[in-house]
Amino acid sequence: MKNADQTIERVLAALRHAEPSATMERRILEAMAAREAEVSLPFWPRWRSMATSLAAALAIAGMVIVVVAGQQHRRAPADTRSHSTAPVVRKTTQPEIVLQQVAPRHPVRSLRHAGKVSAEPQTQVASFPAPPLPLTEQERLLLRLAHRGDSDTTAILNPDARAAQTAKATEQFQQFFAINATEMRNQSE
């Protein structure tokens, strides 16, 4: 009993008389001084670095915007010129126009699917017209004749005029051979 009490007392006395190291106070005061210096910094120096970074970021963003806008501005007239010098047929070709309208809807597509992408929306456009069919051989001939402007050649196209012309030619032929036959008969006589 007494031995247990003594042991307990010994342990409690060790806790009672524990002494910190000699440098503890100094270490604590230094830590507090460092913290105090950190906390007591005035507003502007504490935020100056952050404000500088923010201003730099804004300036860079502004420059990027200006450069991009300038490039787009230069590209726009060039595109207009290229359209004006393009052939008329290209201008009126609908699929290309539709492609230009549709392209912004799907800006990120791989080239592998480009044809599929452009074909699908074209069929969904309400005013999408059928592409003009190529001219047949006869149509091309007709066009060539019409553009030449010869009245005799153009008359061939009219069946009545063509019949009249044929009849006239036949009559002239017969008259010519009839005259020749009469003359030959007179000579032989």
Partner: peptide, 16 residues
């Protein structure tokens, strides 16, 4: 001892 000293330092930091 070392941990007790750390605790004392933390106490005074809280005081600040």
């Amino acid at each position: 001892r070392s941990e007790a000293e750390d605790v004392v330092q933390d106490v005074f930091i809280r005081l600040l």
